[in-house]
Design a binder for these strands. Structure first.
Length: 404
DNA sequence: TCTGGGGTCCTAGGACCC
DNA sequence: TCTGGGGTCCTAGGACCC
């Protein structure tokens, strides 16, 4: 039946062509763009020297020469490169520049998938007649982004999104790497295991412990064996990835998602009162963003990281959605009490709403009428005021007070 | 070196239902 | 009187990504 359908629809067969476009050292580059005096110098975005628990978000290429890289504790960066220019980061500004770049990319194909603030896939399949060969488009994009935004990008091009993604990281900055049709498997087999996208530190250790040294070692094993060794999902993933068959797909229905806020404290928290206050701050942030997205959730989760870095999480799902900040605060209190090891220093607290759904999908009416909906309406009004004037910080008190 | 913040997906087990 | 199988929902933890 599936075969019949395939045969019935005469599809023009264009060879698939994807680009993966990646902004080089994005945050640091924007800083260098906006501050000419930073150009040619090591710039480190993520925190200022003295920030106890910050990490490096992005290091400019000049800073990377000193061994500084993303996710490195800031104190280490300061030791390696004390003379660098340190900035905390202006994320609004990066978002702005990101949109400029995405706007340019969007001109070259109707299917553009932005996967983060600094990277996107473009499907160029079938656009040749309009824009010329994909390779030229890639070059044109690089030139246009540079000219119009002052930023450089590295581009990977391939018949598979997965390989295009890996290819864009091959030559950086300002690189263009093309993996031609038929070369996919060879490309993957020449890749060090550490460059397989989706294989992190832990899986790498497991691979090494099992005697794997190269992607070819993986290639030579059967899918079944890989599945037994690394689990069904990871096994299949590895099997396909080293063959260049990985099927990342475009589109797909939007899955359930979550909205979270968390904070690592400069100094560990031990007092319940302080902890509750911080939880309230996180809740306010999460609820505000849920309001902006017009979503609701029945599942509330709380995360605690202790001073020894052990991390625990608790969640609970109720039959009715979170109605307001007080409601959510009560749920979080219950969760926190359930997990808290009194006396242990708390270095991080996190709060999230999982499985959020659009407010347009109906909720059973009885579930709404618990007297909470009035509070929800008042809070909604407050959020709207904040929308109009983001500078206005209405929620100043420890707990959001709503007269009902 | 001493480890951010925002997410997604996977695993494995338990409860519950038919 | 020694215990099936499938499906769905939920929970906790962990790996991974940028």
């Amino acid at each position: 039946m599936a075969e019949e359908t395939k045969a019935d629809i005469p599809k023009p067969i264009f060879p698939k062509v994807y680009l993966h476009v990646d902004l080089d050292a994005f945050f640091a580059s924007v800083e260098q763009l906006d501050n000419p005096e930073y150009r040619g110098k090591p710039v480190i975005v993520g925190g200022l020297p003295g920030d106890r628990r910050a990490v490096v978000s992005t290091a400019s290429y000049e800073a990377r020469k000193f061994g500084v890289h993303s996710a490195m504790p800031l104190v280490t960066a300061v030791k390696l490169c004390p003379n660098a220019i340190y900035v905390r980061g202006r994320y609004q500004r990066y978002e702005e520049k990101s949109q400029e770049v995405m706007g340019i990319l969007a001109q070259y194909s109707p299917s553009l998938i932005q996967i983060s603030v600094d990277e996107a896939f473009i499907d160029l399949t079938g656009t040749e007649r309009l824009f010329g060969p994909a390779e030229n488009v890639a070059k044109k994009i690089k030139a246009e982004v540079k000219e119009k935004t002052g930023l450089t990008v590295s581009v990977g091009m391939s018949s598979s999104m997965y390989i295009a993604k890996i290819a864009s990281g091959f030559k950086k900055p300002d690189g263009l790497t093309i993996v031609r049709a038929g070369d996919e498997e060879r490309f993957m087999l020449e890749l060090p295991m550490s460059k397989i996208w989706g294989v992190g530190e832990k899986t790498q250790e497991r691979l090494k412990a099992a005697g794997f040294r190269t992607t070819r070692d993986i290639y030579e094993k059967s899918e079944k064996l890989l599945m037994t060794m690394f689990g069904n999902s990871m096994g299949t993933f590895l099997y396909e990835a080293v063959r260049g068959n990985n099927s990342m797909t475009f589109g797909g229905e939007p899955k359930s998602h979550s909205i979270s806020s968390e904070k690592t404290f400069e100094y560990d928290l031990t007092e319940r009162y302080t902890i509750d206050t911080e939880i309230m701050v996180l809740i306010t942030d999460v609820l505000y963003r849920m309001h902006k997205e017009n979503v609701r959730s029945r599942t509330v989760a709380l995360k605690i990281r202790y001073d020894d870095f052990t991390t625990v999480s608790v969640q609970s799902t109720s039959s009715r959605p979170v109605m307001n900040a007080d409601d959510m605060f009560q749920r979080c209190q219950a969760l926190f009490t359930k997990k808290w090891e009194v006396g242990k220093g708390v270095r991080l607290l996190g709060v999230s709403c999982d499985n959020v759904e659009d407010k347009s999908v109906p909720v059973q009416q009885e579930l709404f009428d618990f007297g909470d909906s009035k509070r929800a309406k008042v809070e909604e009004a407050i959020y709207k005021m904040e929308d109009k004037n983001p500078k206005l910080k209405i929620v100043k008190g420890r707990v959001l007070r709503v007269e009902s």
